[in-house]
Amino acid sequence: MNQKNSLGLNHCFLDLEDPIKLFGAWMDDAKKSEPNDPNALSLATSTKDNFPSVRIVLLKEFNHNGLVFYTNLNSQKGNELKENPKAAMCFHWKSLLRQIRVSGTVTQVEDVVADQYYNSRGYESRIGAWASKQSKELNNRDELMNSIKEFKQKYNDENKVPRPSHWSGWNLSPLSFEFWLDGDSRIHERLKYTIDKNGNWIKSLLNP
C-alpha cells in the first residue's frame, strides 16, 4: 500500500486542493487521539505598535468562512484585535505529532451567531461572562466571587441570561495554512497553502 501522497508526503496530508477539508480531517483525527481539548489553539495577536502576545483559546467552529473563537471584547486579546485585526493560530497535537499554523484577518461574528453560541453554554459560564472583567486587575479573589454572586442574584433564571454586549466571537479568515508532521532526525514534513488574489489556494512544500 502506498503511504505517500502525490507530493511525496505522508498519506495523512491527503491530496486536497482545499485546506479547510484537510484541516477538518486532521481535527477529526485529533478528536480521536487527544485526551483533552483537541480544539485548543495558541492565538497570537499584536498591538497597533506591533507588540505580540499569545494565549490558549478554544476553537468553536470552522468552515469556509473561517475559524471562530469567543471572548470578552474588552480583554487584552479583544482590544488588540480591535487595534490590529490580524492574528495567527497554532494547533499542536502531541498524540499525532502534528501541527497546523493559520494566519489571517479577523472580524467580529454577527450578533445572532454570538447569541446562539452563548445560549448553548452552561449557566455558570454565562454568568462568568458578566462577572469577570477579563484581563483587568483584581484586588483579591473575593472581588470576583462576589461579582459572580451578584450576577447570579440578578439573573436567577437559568434560562434567561442575556449575552453581554462586551462578549462575542471573532472569525479568523485564513490567508495561509501550514500543515506540519514530525519526522525522524528533525526531517519534518511541511505543506503550506496560500490564498492568491483570485481566492485560489496555492500549495507549496517547505523545508523542515
Rank of each mutant, 00 (worst) to 15 (best):
N2Y: 05
Q3H: 12
N5T: 10
G8W: 04
C12T: 12
L14E: 15
L16V: 03
E17M: 03
E17G: 10
D18P: 05
L22M: 09
W26I: 02
D29N: 06
D29R: 11
K31P: 00
P35S: 13
P35A: 11
N36T: 08
P38C: 05
L41E: 03
L41C: 12
S42W: 06
L43K: 01
A44C: 14
A44R: 04
A44M: 03
T47Y: 09
F51C: 07
P52C: 08
V54T: 15
R55Y: 02
L59G: 06
E61Y: 08
E61Q: 15
E61I: 00
N63I: 05
N63W: 03
L67V: 13
F69T: 09
N74S: 11
N74V: 04
S75L: 06
E80I: 01
E83D: 11
N84G: 04
N84L: 01
A87F: 10
A88H: 04
M89A: 02
F91N: 08
H92A: 12
K94P: 02
L96S: 06
L97Q: 14
L97F: 07
Q99C: 10
R101Q: 13
G104R: 00
G104F: 00
T105G: 03
T105I: 08
V106L: 09
Q108L: 14
D111A: 14
V112D: 14
A114F: 01
Y118A: 02
Y118T: 02
N119A: 13
N119M: 12
R121I: 08
S125K: 02
I127M: 05
I127E: 05
W130N: 03
S132F: 05
K136D: 14
L138R: 11
L138F: 13
L138C: 11
N139F: 08
N140C: 15
D142T: 12
E143A: 14
M145A: 13
N146P: 01
I148C: 07
E150N: 13
K152A: 07
Y155P: 08
D157W: 06
D157I: 02
K160A: 12
R163L: 08
P164W: 11
P174F: 00
F177R: 03
E178Q: 09
F179P: 10
W180R: 04
D182H: 10
I187S: 05
I187E: 04
E189R: 01
T194S: 12
I195D: 03
K197H: 13
N198S: 10
W201V: 01
L206T: 02
L206D: 09
N207K: 10
